[in-house]
């Protein structure tokens, strides 16, 4: 597990740096690309934990779809090449405070809940079968709730996009 720990550290450092660049860079497309690095880091961390399915889904959904749509939107609307002075909000204190508070809350919840939990030492990956079994038995209600939520978002988007 030593090798995994070392790579966890390296990837975490890269992710933090990239996350800071997302909010500090003044070029919108560059910000999206730094976001890709953060998300790829998340996928890498999942792979390190042997969660292949979640890792690849992360790539497929976030890098392959969400950020592509971001970029598509940027290119369709502004696509400015150089630095954009209007990217930074004048009021940064409130978003920063909310970000720090949210991070603190989630970190506390995670540490508090999994304080004594240990990862399996043999490093064997979680199979897709195991993931699907737990989604469709133990977590069926959250899963269905998420699906309905996504459907609602989809319909909402169509309603907003319609002309009248």
């Amino acid at each position: 597990m030593v090798a995994q720990n070392i790579f966890f550290g390296i990837m975490a450092a890269i992710m933090i740096w990239a996350a800071l660049r997302v909010v500090t860079t003044k070029n919108v497309v560059h910000a999206a690309l730094w976001l890709v690095i953060v998300l790829a880091g998340v996928a890498g961390q999942f792979l390190l934990l042997g969660a292949e399915f979640v890792g690849v889904t992360q790539i497929l959904v976030y890098i392959g779809a969400v950020v592509v749509l971001f970029l598509f939107g940027i290119m369709l609307t502004r696509a400015s090449m150089g630095e954009d002075e209007n990217v930074n909000l004048p009021n940064r204190i409130v978003p920063a405070t909310v970000g720090v508070l949210l991070f603190g809350l989630m970190a506390f919840a995670t540490i508090d809940y999994w304080r004594d939990a240990e990862l399996p030492k043999d490093g064997s990956p979680t199979t897709v079968e195991a993931v699907s079994d737990s989604i469709f038995s133990d977590f069926i209600v959250p899963f269905e709730a998420t699906s309905v939520l996504l459907l609602a978002a989809l319909i909402g988007a169509i309603v907003v996009a319609r002309k009248e």
């Binding site: 497309v29 497929l60 392959g64 970029l71 598509f72 290119m75």
Partner: peptide, 28 residues
């Protein structure tokens, strides 16, 4: 021969979009 096999193909083909998108944008 990973467990996720064919999903990997989909993931890679979705990453391939970046090459084309960024090439066009960065040409200015």
């Amino acid at each position: 021969d990973p467990h996720i096999g064919i999903l990997f193909v989909l993931a890679m083909s979705s990453i391939a979009v970046y090459g084309i998108m960024l090439a066009g944008w960065s040409s200015g």
